[in-house]
Each structure stands twice: as C-alpha cells, then as structure tokens.
C-alpha cells in the first residue's frame, strides 16, 4: 500500500501558491481579462466578483474532478459548461436573495462568469486529470490569483478615477480646490488594460522566472 499523501504536501501547496505570482491567471496566462476590464471600476464589486469566481471555480473543479472518469470525452466541454453555468446561476440567485445591493452593482457580470476563460481553462486543463483535493486547491489558488489582480487594478482605478477607496473619499477636498480633477479615463475599460499592462511589466521586471529567453 502506498503511503497516503499529506493534505498539504509541498506539491499541493504549490498548486495554491503558483497562481498568485509565477502563474497568475491574469498577468501570466492572460485569462479572464474581460472581467478584469469590466468590473474593476470600484473595489467593492471587484471583491464580490473575486469571491464569486472563487466559489464557482473551486466547486466546479471538485465536481468535474469527481466526474472525470464518467464524463465521455466527446462531450466534455459541454459538461464543463453545464457545471459552470449551474454554479454561476446559484451564485447569482444567492446574491439576489442575500446581497441585493451588490448583485445590482454587478448586474450582468455575474452571468458573464460563465464565459470567463479562466474557469473553462482550469476545468479542462487540471480538473479533468486530477483528484478532487488537488483540483480544489488549484481552483482556490487560481481564483485567488485572479481576485488579487482584480482588487489591485480596482484600487488604482477607483483611487484615480473617483478619488475614493472602497467608497470612502480619500483625496481631500482641498486638492480639488487646488485644481486636481478625477481622471475620467480611469473609469473606462481601456485604462484597465493599461493598468494590467503596467502590472505585468512590473511583475516581469521583478520575477526572473518570467523573463523569456530570446
């Protein structure tokens, strides 16, 4: 009998940590950019979006991993989509019932989690070939890496675009009196792309593993 692998073996921990930096879904794999552009105008919806993706991705990963030997390969993508869509609708319904304000803010974007390529990517690339526990950790790790980036991008966009952080005014009134103005461009999606670009630039500059050899 082979020795049972401990729950938090180095291999499993790696699944959790790698997406936070070396293999970040947004800045390295460049997945899930659409969501990063759309809902990062303010921090609050970004946090809810991050949590929703966390729930959807980790649960879907476990479900697919449990079913992986039963799913006929020919219809596996459809099966994955059905599982994701189910989770997303559940999250949406629960938000509407228990967090109405937030669900109003996120509006259509909760539904759009279904089309988030990150989730499909993890189900197809990882959960189909691994046991439930590693799949769960992989889901958590990737969603955390994704959510972290959303919140970082939202931080800068909210600060520069609206002068607030988490809805609280942080730029003092005297700045505005002295001629400072909120940058309306930060609120529009193109600036999210620019912010993500700058983050990628900084990350690649600091993390040697990501520097490609030419």
């Amino acid at each position: 009998m082979s020795e049972k692998e401990p729950l938090f073996s180095p291999k499993n921990l790696k699944l959790l940590k790698e997406p936070l930096n070396d293999n970040n879904p947004i800045t390295v794999q460049v997945l899930g950019i659409c969501a990063a552009l759309a809902i990062t105008v303010q921090i609050k919806p970004s946090i809810v979006m991050a949590l929703s993706v966390l729930a959807v991705l980790s649960i879907s990963n476990v479900v697919i991993s449990l079913l992986r030997k039963l799913i006929p390969p020919r219809i596996r993508i459809i099966v994955q989509l059905v599982v994701i869509a189910t989770m997303v609708i559940l999250v949406d319904q629960i938000l509407q019932a228990y967090a109405f304000e937030v669900s109003k803010q996120l509006s259509v974007f909760v539904g759009l989690i279904i089309t988030n390529c990150l989730i499909m990517g993890r189900l197809e690339g990882f959960a189909m070939a691994n046991k439930p526990w590693p799949a769960f950790l992989d889901g958590l790790g990737n969603a955390a890496g994704f959510g972290m980036m959303l919140i970082i991008v939202a931080f800068f966009r909210e600060l520069l675009g609206s002068g607030t952080i988490y809805g609280y005014q942080v730029i003092p009134e005297s700045f505005y009196d002295a001629g400072y103005a909120n940058n309306g461009l930060m609120i529009l999606p193109p600036m999210a792309l620019v912010v993500v670009g700058i983050i990628i630039w900084i990350q690649r500059g600091r993390n040697r593993k990501l520097i490609e050899e030419n």
Binding site: P72, I75, I89, L90, Q93, I94, A97, Y98, F100
Partner: peptide, 24 residues
Amino acid sequence: FASVLVIIVATLLSFVAEQLKPLQ
C-alpha cells in the same frame, strides 16, 4: 449521461430558485 446530468441540474436550479424567490 447528458440526460441524467441535465435532469439533476434542472431539478437543483428550480428548487433553489423556488426557495429563494420570496426573499428576492
């Protein structure tokens, strides 16, 4: 497989939707 999956999902979703409707 496809039919069973769809039936399970549909039952689950309609059950949840009915349960949460009054709250919503």
